[in-house]
Design a protein around this nucleic acid. Structure first.
Lengths: 233, 233
DNA sequence: TCCGCCATAGTGGTCTGACCACCTGGCCGG
DNA sequence: CCGGCCAGGTGGTCAGACCACTATGGCGGA
């Protein structure tokens, strides 16, 4: 009856591809609910175990979402859903790879900040200021880090490219930054960070893209150079 | 007995986190072989089915690699291994998200090309030329696309940032580009593409970063603008 | 002695069927 | 009419069996 699968790879892998294809071809819309695991297994002619592995795989990729007791749904397939796995990359990278990731972040962050300088709205600017002042008002590293992240996320959002913002979010994932900061803050980098953030903010207020680009690049580049030196030592 | 897991999330999710943690803490080195599925399941106190789901999840993320009949191994955790999932993102993105991805690619590709202009070696330059001439010597879209990909990949590699090269590779994944090209090539874009590639190559030969950046940005931007227009229509 | 074949043990891959935990919606009683 | 209860359906987990493949080491022949 079914001559769709001419035997290639594992059945699970095949199931993953088939579901991905269904979504790619539009047979499954974002947010739509899929048949039950049991039905899907029958449809593709495989066991429920294999089908579950396929579903689990697509779940960690941010393509599907399983709700216990309710069903399996296609995510909205937005940038945030799919790029969440980017954080894993950042978390598992070490040594020279960390420097490379920071270099990528520097390139994207500087461009995003430049775009934001041109496009940011008063409301968004107010939000940025909120995190800036909150960050300056505390000495708790945890809180500083949180506002630091929010500061940059808000700016990336103002750049108007959700995909880029999602990537930057992954590149700044909590554990990633925490790992770098642990050693970085020892050299009293808080003050410098605050100065750099102020410079970025000033460029945003002035709607000066080039100044914003330079300030952001310098900000990330500072950490990048420090990390590079650490590895060379 | 075991107070490691105080009940949070599904057992599979917990297993995923635990294995990730083992790698993050260095208890599992890249390339190292893991215990068997059966042993791992016993160690973490879960069933083999759940353990298999966890392994499958980490497999699609490029963290683990399962070899039938041999065992499960940690990948080298290099950029290419972990960023393969980036291709999935590109394949499943549609509409405005495609434009955003192209914008990200434009930013990274232009910078990568600029870096390459400064650092490229004669050998690498020869390789680039090979793909350029091969691309000009055929009319088969399939082959042109293949050499087009290789052309950019070689340049990205010459930039000296493996991570960036891997991301660009994902952003240029076969199905992604094929989808865009299907409509794009109708307007006789082959000639324009060749011209643009020639301009990029010329900048590389001259070791002129700024010219390279401009040429690469224009090259990607061309497609980006076309796609933007398509969506607006 | 050495090489090559092959039996075998061990591994991941798949299947089955059962049970549990949770959500949902409808029914029933207030 | 409303609220709580309950049953059916769903994903989550488990157990055990068998299959497909790989690697290893021993055996036989050259």
């Amino acid at each position: 009856m079914d001559e769709t699968a001419p035997q290639k790879g594992t059945v699970t892998q095949r199931a993953i591809e088939q579901i991905k294809a269904m979504i790619g071809e539009g047979r499954l819309e974002p947010g739509q609910r899929l048949p039950t695991e049991r039905d899907l297994a029958v449809q593709l002619g495989i066991s429920r175990s294999s089908m579950r592995e396929a579903i689990r795989a697509l779940t960690v990729l941010g393509v599907l979402e399983a709700r216990h007791g309710s069903g399996i749904y296609v995510t909205q397939l937005e940038a945030g859903d799919l790029l969440e796995t980017f954080g894993v990359v950042a978390d598992l990278s070490r040594g020279p790879r960390l420097v490379e990731l920071l270099e990528v972040r520097r390139i994207l962050e500087s461009t995003a900040t430049a775009l934001a300088a041109a496009r940011i709205t008063p409301d968004q600017l107010a939000e940025v200021e909120k995190h800036l002042t909150a960050m300056n008002a505390t000495e708790d590293p945890e809180e500083i880090l949180a506002h630091d992240l929010a500061f940059h996320r808000e700016i990336a959002g103002a750049a108007g490219n959700e995909t880029m913002a999602a990537i930057l979010d992954g590149l700044s994932s909590r554990t990633f930054r925490a790992r770098v900061w642990r050693g970085y803050q020892e050299e009293g980098a808080f003050a410098r960070t605050r100065r750099e953030h102020t410079a970025i903010h000033r460029a945003l207020v002035a709607h000066d893209p080039e100044a914003a680009r330079a300030a952001a690049a310098a900000h990330v580049g500072e950490v990048e150079q420090w990390l590079r030196a650490q590895l060379g030592a």
